[in-house]
Design a protein around this nucleic acid. Structure first.
Lengths: 201, 201, 201, 201
DNA sequence: GATGAATGAGCATTCATTCAT
DNA sequence: CATGAATGAATGCTCATTCAT
């Protein structure tokens, strides 16, 4: 990478990091572009060299952070050598929930965006196959000892439930704190998976 | 209600209705208070006699619209003389989904707010017991022929799943259109209810 | 006029006058709205209560100043009890030229806009018949002892010539200073009028 | 011309042409230098190697386009072997009007600049005597069979009238379309010439 | 000569809020 | 209670210009 290219990446990253910091502390609405550039130590015009507006930055961040979350969970699962679709999916959900519990600002930021839609969007940006999270989900399904029907619907249902219920349970401890809710959540996940099972291979 | 009182309610309603119109068409961010008052035909200062700011109006609207949705579904259920908790809950969910399918702007507006939190908030505003939706859910549970454990968790899980998955399925037809998704959703709801059942009374 | 109305007119006039001052000294391009309001002693937002932008102000000024010029010339002509179309038209042109010679900034400002188009536009704003300059021109033509053909064309040609040639002669003294050019100009005006004459009434 | 010289001229021409395109379509005010360089395919810094700013480009273009217009008219007149000052001048005016009728963007661009001032300016840039349009006008006058007084004033008056009246008549069809106005215009031109005539040689 | 990333002053415009009437 | 003129801070965005490569 040339020196110029490096410099450009540095500028862009500085803007992204600063924006994330401000978005999570002051909220996206209350964050002005002048705040971002001042703190990032670049000129105002430079911002517009890299992003169209505040929301362009936000989208980049959501995609990146979501991807990271799934990526780390997947890596940990590999390390743990988890077997069986049920345990694998629950491991991933559990890992992400634990990550988010430790980072409430992040949870708040990606908040309800942790859904299939965003997930799919994320995948589009990650070009190489290795990074394709959705593909990895599908592989997990295929490598299981059971056949499954309507895999799309199954994964969608699980992600939506875990995302939406997890969000409220972690953040508002409603109706119960997340640690207490986890058993119910995972029981439901197992039920959903079971209901899509079509017989042993 | 005195003539003055009537006039005040009229002004307030005009502001609410106009705000809802603009919020759903232009988006809440792009709607200025001056837009609202101009269209509502009142003076700018008058706005501040009834609401603190834009978001005060929004909250009022979300609560009101959500309440309406549940109220209509409950009323329809009563008329249909539905029996049994499973069928009753699914009837309500189905009714709300159908209502929202016919009113996408509304779906978009209350969007992801159709969750327990908002639901609870709604109930606070509705003072009289008859209107308390949550209470009615609990009655439905109590009148069922089965015993249930962790009723709070059960209702929360169902509302979160239906809200989040329904939203995406209706609006983006992802992963499948709502009509196609309904059977899966209701099957899952039945599984959740079943998993909380503790035995016949 | 109520006190509020008076205050509004005062504000508007202050903005117009200040803008004219700045437009003629710094040029319209170099004049920022913040310059205008600062000098006019009003808040920035107030500007937008009365004008859409800088150019809205400019149009208002051009129309107003042009109208004034013609109006004063017409009044002077009346006082002088000029008779005969030729002498009347030349009197008006001469009066306007003299006015503009004494006020070069004004000449520069309305510059080449002193043409039929602007003239017509001006007339539209002046509602009452008395103020309608074009109508007065037509009356002058009708009251002359001669018949004229293609009156529109005749007036247009005279105004264009006087406006365009006058502008350059006054401002740049090219090809000769205006005082020297006047005899040529008026001779030409008489020729144009003569060429449209159709015979005595 | 060396290869480097050629390359430089190419860059300069690309900038001029692109600027003309943008000036006539978006207007000079709305055209940014970045627009010009982007479309011309050169770097931003390069612009400043050839021009001081936007208006430097504009002046170059006005002069060049005006010159071209007169030059083509003069060449056509030569070809047509027109004789006599009146017919010659009218031929030139007519030729230019026809050119501008076919190219309204050009008319709009040079608009009111088609005046003696610009004409003179043009001549300054054209170094070689052959190209000196004003000189050619003077020759035409000298070669006529009549003597003329105040030739400067005569040419000035004609150019101002034709330029200003022509502009409005072509562009706005006011007070009549140019084709209809031409006879009046040329009749006036003949009157002006006649009024400067001093007797046969 | 050519490049184009970086700059930051400068500007138009919006809008919530106030308060005299 | 209601009004709406006035405010001015706040902000997004542009763009001519520079200069290290």
């Amino acid at each position: 990478m040339g020196k110029v290219e490096e410099n450009k990446k540095q500028k862009r990253d500085a803007l992204l990091n600063t924006a994330y910091e401000l978005f999570t502390t002051k909220g996206i609405h209350a964050t002005a572009i002048s705040d971002i550039v001042k703190r990032a130590g670049v000129a105002k015009g430079t911002f517009y060299l890299y992003f169209r507006d505040k929301y362009d930055v936000k989208n980049n961040l959501v995609a990146h952070k979501t991807h990271e979350l799934f990526y780390r969970a997947g890596a940990a699962m590999e390390t743990a050598q988890m077997k069986g679709l049920e345990d694998q999916l629950i491991f991933i959900i559990d890992h992400i929930i634990d990550d988010l519990m430790k980072d409430l600002p992040l949870l708040n930021f990606i908040s309800k965006n942790l859904v299939m839609g965003a997930l799919r969007a994320t995948l589009i940006t990650g070009k190489d196959a290795d990074n394709d999270i959705y593909e990895r989900f599908l592989s997990m399904v295929e490598e299981d000892i059971y056949h499954y029907q309507d895999v799309d619907v199954m994964l969608f249902t699980i992600v939506e439930l875990a995302g939406s219920a997890g969000y409220n349970s972690i953040l508002y401890k409603e109706p119960v704190p997340i640690e207490e809710y986890k058993p119910f959540l995972y029981r439901t996940v197992r039920l959903i998976i079971g209901s899509h099972r079509a017989g042993q291979k």
